[in-house]
Design a protein around this nucleic acid. Structure first.
Lengths: 225, 225
DNA sequence: TTTAAAAATAAGAATTTTTTCAGAAAAATT
DNA sequence: AATTTTTCTGAAAAAATTCTTATTTTTAAA
């Protein structure tokens, strides 16, 4: 579990850092918004703790900025004010939770755990895409199903990634051609079908619950049942 | 936005219900865990508000039960106690947020909005056409009626989509031929009639209230009664 | 009530779509 | 440069859908 704390008050920062490290979490501290922003964007944290009152860029602005940069990491805002307006601004800015200072350390931990847990369940922060018992590890570039490691070629991987990211939705062959092969015209060949077949052999064949389903006349869909 | 409140104290339940309805949210109230569980599992709510102290099944148990049933709807726990232990149990049981009684109504709204927003971000946005208890899911490319999943071929799907989009209006065979088949002349066959028949077998046959009605000499109309 | 037109249904032929296979071409690795 | 791996192609087999035709049933008007 990796946490970024953006907090200008050194004492508080140090206190929180120490406390979290005792939980054996990895902790980075940024002392202003600038530093916070660059750390947040260049590392992959599980959670970001963000003080509202910061020099230069304030917490709301920073949260906003990070969301505009498409960062999905959950953000917990620390606010000394605790008025409803602040809470609303916080959520609007893209925060996922907030905590009013002064707070009990235990409560911080609980809320961080909750954020992290919620995010890891179906989060784009995580580098593992999931559907049912199938995992696609974007770091290792490997698939796993039911404990088996499944190696995929580049094209197979790309196709599976596209399927999982669009699970529950029928994707047409044209969609696939454009998004996976980057081909924007009809080749007249059945390459896609052949690759679907390759994938099925690897991830579905020996399992009871198939994940890739054909929808005749429309395309394919990845779904649990 | 559809909310389920599980709360045994009638005054509080009524107060919250009224407040949320003023935000034009749909609100159901369950007065005990049993009722809460059956409502939660048979409807699809955006958020569930769950009191910890309930008769029969308590809030923690209920949250646990719902998660074991694979329900992913975000849960906000209401606790009168406010001790850290309760909060921890709440999160462990599968709650996504909690609020200590007594609370400001505005704060409840903020937290519910945040939960709902977060939930709707992940996964493809639902894309569903409806008439009466019939749903046509444009993502999954499947129809549902009264809990049954109904698979359709491409042509059947296209025809049903056209019917639903034009519900309450008589559509002629010429309209259908042009819009669904893209045929602009008379083929002399009764293909459309045959397909209407296919559709009826799948979506109307076993249900009391028929949705596809023949208007002799004119065409067909899809309507509730 | 009869009758002609309109619509619904059943069966199966025709067509389209999808899967699978074997192998060629291209790319990457040794 | 040779070998292995990956990507792609075309063709045949299998599966599913689409469409036609013929027949039965229903509707509405005479």
């Amino acid at each position: 579990m990796k946490v970024l704390i953006v907090e200008d008050e050194p004492k508080l920062a140090a206190f929180v850092k120490k406390g979290l490290e005792e939980q054996s979490w990895e902790v980075d501290v940024a002392f202003d918004g600038q530093m916070g922003s660059s750390l947040a964007l260049s590392n992959s944290y599980d959670v970001i703790v963000l003080d509202v009152n910061l020099p230069k860029i304030n917490g709301f602005e920073l949260a906003n900025l990070l969301r505009r940069e498409n960062l999905r990491t959950p953000i917990l805002m620390l606010t000394a004010l605790g008025t409803l307006n602040d809470k609303i601004s916080g959520f609007d800015a893209g925060a996922d939770d907030y905590l009013v200072k002064p707070f009990e350390f235990q409560e911080l931990i609980i809320r961080l755990r909750a954020l992290q847990k919620r995010n890891s369940e179906s989060g784009p922060t995580s580098n593992v895409l999931k559907i049912a018992d199938l995992e696609l590890d974007l770091n290792e570039r490997i698939a796993r199903r039911g404990g088996n490691r499944i190696e995929l070629t580049a094209k197979e991987f790309g196709l599976l990634e596209y399927f999982i990211r669009n699970k529950g939705r029928v994707v047409s062959r044209v969609d696939i051609a454009e998004k996976v092969w980057d081909i924007h015209f009809d080749t007249g060949t059945n390459t896609i079908d052949v690759y679907v077949n390759f994938l099925r052999k690897k991830i579905d064949k020996e399992f009871e619950h198939k994940l890739i389903h054909t929808v005749v006349g429309m395309g394919y869909i990845m779904k649990e049942f």
